[in-house]
Write a protein that binds this DNA or RNA. Structure first.
Lengths: 152, 152
DNA sequence: CAAAATTAGATTGTGCGCAATATATTGGTG
DNA sequence: CACCAATATATTGCGCACAATCTAATTTTG
């Protein structure tokens, strides 16, 4: 019992960290709940929506490239992409030059879905009820934290 | 094409929101990856760790109370708690007064685990590489956003 | 007090998310 | 050219997360 200085610092930091991690965890779930009814109209889940957002920006990418963008591996993406394929939104085809790779391309139906998807963001923005600047600042701070976590 | 004022505001907001939501989503995964090796030593998953954190603070709570605390429903908690039970960390017992409820109580083994768990937070704090004040501010902003999302 | 409505958990089914493993292709190296 | 390491994807298994449905217990109401 010889601690005159506040050596409970680490304990506090742990609690703070547990708290922050839980806040991030529960905020992700909260976002998901807001997105879900909007995405149900498109017959997409949120991860599927992320994949489609990427493909609308750049078509014909490999599974690996999608995985790097979203931080997901083939164990997650292969079945997800097969579901998008069976929904008629994308095609999956081995690259002729390197048959280890599978390239994902959008179908006309997948392209058409982009129009319906334009309104999705609006509903979520309403739910945030915060200024653009606040949200931008929050996003920037979180990106900084995420990248540090990923680097460690 | 008669838009002199920046009417693309909504489009920008949608993109920002998509971005922020993805940032939260990917930060949650990044946290999980940092926690995982630390929790592996305790044989706990992150959601199980959250449940145990709650029980170490307050024992003998109902499944519903745990669900309200963590924003999870019985479809998630029932099997999770059964796994904690079969690991010998908790007991599940119907409330004598109201048999609809199941009360969760910690076993000696579950209490003992708390000591091993004390060091978990430290490793994650290191990975954050940010000042306590920054993390506190970030947590507060996220809580504000999360509660607004949940309220909508 | 009996019927109806509410509440607490459990069950089932679908879809991630990730570790571990397997398979097939490609690119060196001797 | 045969061998070997590296690469890209697929498969399997486990554990959330949640919607939908079910059962049982309690509370409310007529």
């Amino acid at each position: 019992m010889t601690r005159n200085t506040p050596t409970n610092r680490d304990g506090e930091a742990s609690q703070l960290n547990d708290m922050l991690c839980f806040t991030v965890y529960s905020t992700a779930h909260a976002f998901n709940r807001v997105y879900k009814p909007l995405l149900d109209a498109l017959q997409l889940t949120y991860p599927q929506y992320l994949v489609m957002l990427g493909l609308w920006e750049r078509d014909g990418v490999t599974v690996k490239q999608i995985g790097e963008q979203l931080h997901l591996d083939s164990g997650t993406l292969t079945p997800l992409l097969k579901r998008l394929e069976s929904a008629g939104l994308v095609r999956r085809a081995r690259d002729a030059a390197d048959e280890r790779q599978v390239r994902i391309s959008i179908t006309p139906k997948g392209t058409a879905l982009r129009e319906k998807a334009r309104t999705v963001g609006h509903g979520v923005v309403d739910a945030c009820q915060q200024s653009r600047d606040e949200l931008k600042a929050l996003n920037a701070q979180l990106v900084k934290l995420r990248d540090k976590l990923n680097a460690s």
